[in-house]
């Protein structure tokens, strides 16, 4: 027997739509894995890992990373927890600063600002659960004062430190504070 042309057409259109939906989902899901330049890769071009690198000022036409605030200065630090715990230490004398921790996929892991940090000084330790248990056997004396961020897996990622520049005359001071910020071993 032969199918009527209308039935064949309907089946064809349905098949096309179902297949199109599957392809749509596959394309959307495959984009994150096929991105050429993630934020994690881009940051590597501003200096070596495990130290805060000052990003150039956010100005029209020379934006280093998309979607940054022109009212802020930024410093970024790439780290890999496989190489050991990372200690962030910074003292920035402005009314607002914040730090965000992101994994290599660009997802926020942890974030705080100078009010939630509870102190004028940022001292934050990022390590894996395993590294923390090793560290507890022989704790450094200031461990109690640190903000300790524990991750189950040894993640690779980056930290972005944002500091508000209240006035252009304070820009150099903020630059200095961001350059002096530490991102390294304990």
């Amino acid at each position: 027997m032969t199918l009527s042309p209308r039935f064949t057409l309907t089946v064809g259109i349905l098949a096309t739509l179902c297949l199109a939906a599957i392809i749509h989902i596959l394309v959307v899901l495959s984009i994150p894995r096929n991105v050429q330049h993630s934020a994690y890769d881009n940051i590597a071009s501003y200096g070596t890992d495990r130290q805060f690198n000052l990003l150039p000022d956010v100005k029209p036409g020379q934006e280093v990373l998309p979607d940054l605030d022109p009212a802020m200065k930024h410093a970024a630090c790439r780290f890999q927890l496989d190489d050991g715990p990372v200690l962030f230490d910074a003292s920035i004398p402005v009314s607002f600063w914040s730090i965000g921790l992101f994994n290599a996929a660009g997802e926020a892991v942890y974030s705080l600002n100078n009010r939630t940090a509870g102190a004028e000084r940022l001292s934050m330790l990022v390590l894996t659960t395993q590294q923390l248990s090793i560290l507890r056997e022989n704790p450094p004396e200031n461990l109690e004062d640190l903000i300790v961020i524990e991750t189950p897996e040894p993640i690779s990622g980056f930290a972005l430190l944002r500091a508000y520049v209240p006035h252009a005359s304070r820009a150099e001071e903020v630059d200095g504070a961001l350059q002096a910020a530490r991102c390294g071993t304990i």
Binding site: H37, D67, L68, G100, A108, N113
Partner: peptide, 8 residues
Amino acid sequence: AVIPLASG
């Protein structure tokens, strides 16, 4: 390659 503002 957007770095979002994290919730904190």
